[in-house]
């Protein structure tokens, strides 16, 4: 076992604005470190080969499959997970849109879609419904048929734009 410990690497990770130190094997994925070392279990794993997107988190603001990234690769970068959305018991505007539009059923894929949408809307606040649909097609959902997920993101984007106009007016 001593060898195994010696093989481990000490990583310093910035997750949701907090510094975390973890001693892990170099092969350990970011998804596993988030879920099982930091116990931020909101990020889910459903395929481990980068297709379904349930493990999507933001790395330096961009959506990333955390199952395809080693934790070591996240050093020096800012990681955001679903736990960073909202404040305490108060849901964020995106989370509220998801519940209002019934954009989740079992909820297993939901954190991935939320982080995908958070990253996408930050980069593309004016995206059309067709563009949102294309972005949503990055991830898999087996319950909803996707329509209400697209509805929720579109609605959230529209409200953000309206709020932006009010601010600048």
């Amino acid at each position: 076992m001593d060898d195994a410990v010696n093989d481990k690497v000490l990583l310093s990770l910035d997750v949701n604005g907090s510094e975390h130190e973890v001693l892990v094997e170099p092969r350990r994925t970011l998804a596993d470190v988030l879920r099982h070392d930091l116990e931020l279990t909101g990020t889910h794993i459903a395929c481990e080969h980068g297709v379904c997107g349930a493990c999507t988190v933001l790395v330096d603001g961009a959506p990333v499959r955390s199952c395809l990234m080693f934790a070591a690769q996240a050093e020096g970068r800012g990681v955001r997970t679903v736990e960073s959305l909202g404040r305490g018991d108060e849901l964020s505007d995106l989370q509220r849109a998801f519940t209002e539009h019934h954009a989740l059923q079992c909820g297993f894929c939901t954190p991935g879609f939320l982080m995908l949408a958070e990253g996408f809307l930050a980069a593309r606040p004016d995206a059309s419904r067709a563009e949102i649909r294309e972005a949503v097609s990055s991830n898999l959902c087996r319950c909803t048929g996707y329509q209400t997920i697209v509805d929720a993101i579109e609605d959230c984007a529209a409200r953000r734009r309206a709020a932006e106009r009010t601010r600048s007016a």
């Binding site: 279990t41 889910h44 736990e83 989370q95 989740l104 909820g107 297993f108 939901t110």
Partner: peptide, 20 residues
């Protein structure tokens, strides 16, 4: 609105792999 949603939206739900 669903009673299930707040925990599912905030990463506070507890699925079987979340049990340590």
């Amino acid at each position: 609105k669903r009673k299930e949603d707040p925990r599912l939206l905030t990463g506070r739900a507890r699925f079987v792999d979340d049990i340590h």
